[in-house]
Design a protein around this nucleic acid. Structure first.
Lengths: 158, 158
DNA sequence: ATACGTGCAAAGTATTTGCAAACGG
DNA sequence: CCGTTTGCAAATACTTTGCACGTAT
């Protein structure tokens, strides 16, 4: 008898809110807004982006609250901080189910793109094992020129 | 007739100073001091650390000059910026000859330790190739507990 | 001699913190 | 209702910039 157990893939937002509850934390305005905004993104975003994104959808939260929410979520291992070298901290959901991804940073226009690579993932795990290191988090940042910049196109953003 | 061509392994400092000259840049006080300090380190250090290190050896340079020197060196690909997630930019020599290393960051005490792993290195190159990406720089930051912290020892620094 | 480099201090950003008010449970 | 959470604004930390002077070439 087969049952459709895996059909429900809870969103990261739902998982994160559960995580907050499990930790005995409240999910009022700011915290919830941050979780919901992050859950809708597919790559990392800065605190400012999060704040603006939330503002764009009607509500408004203080920057401080965004940082505090991110801090809390990071402690619970629900979000991961990603540093791409521009002095701005970025954050992204840690999705257990989803494939982990890493980051390509364009040296030219500064844009950040996600990528996944299974062999790399395995190499990382083996490396950690070899070092006797319990891998809590990891992040690979590769730098180079993105497709757009390589082709001499002006970056759309700036 | 064999000549002892490879016996001289020029220090990174020497290479960096050459690089500066090649770029038509001067190597006066601050720039030279930064290069010499960095060349003597085996892992990444922050601008403040560099400044203090230089101060400790007699000379004194302004923070601004350290940042400017690092900026210049980074543009020449002589140093690489390393971000370990504590909001402080760190920098380290790019040693062509030497084996590239990556970073282990202790989630507990925050210390940064270098490590090398050949298979990981190869996996990175293959991944970049697979992505059609010209790898200019890369940095892997692994997070977890360092040996000291795992053993419940108090971190020596703080 | 002269343009490049440097130091100082002031300015600019990103992030954190203190505190009273708001609100979730 | 009560203690957590939030927003605001002030504080902090890091990094950058302007400008006058010093110095390598």
């Amino acid at each position: 008898m087969r049952t459709a157990i895996v059909l429900e893939m809870p969103t990261w937002s739902a998982l994160a809110l559960d995580g907050l509850r499990a930790a005995g934390l409240r999910r009022g305005g700011a915290r919830r807004a941050v979780v919901e905004y992050l859950g809708a993104q597919d790559c990392c975003c800065s605190a400012q982006e999060i704040r603006e994104g939330i503002a764009a959808s009607g509500s408004a939260v203080g920057v401080a609250s965004v940082y505090r929410a991110l801090d809390t979520l990071a402690e619970l291992r629900l979000v991961q901080r990603v540093d791409v070298g521009d002095g701005v901290a970025r954050f992204e959901p840690v999705r257990a189910d989803h494939h982990h991804h890493h980051h390509l940073v364009c040296d030219d226009c500064g844009r950040v793109a996600p990528f996944t690579d299974e062999p790399l993932e395995r190499a990382l795990e083996r490396a950690a094992g070899r070092l006797g290191y319990t891998l809590e988090q990891h992040d690979v940042v590769l730098r180079g020129a993105c497709d757009d910049c390589r082709r001499g196109l002006a970056p759309p953003g700036a």
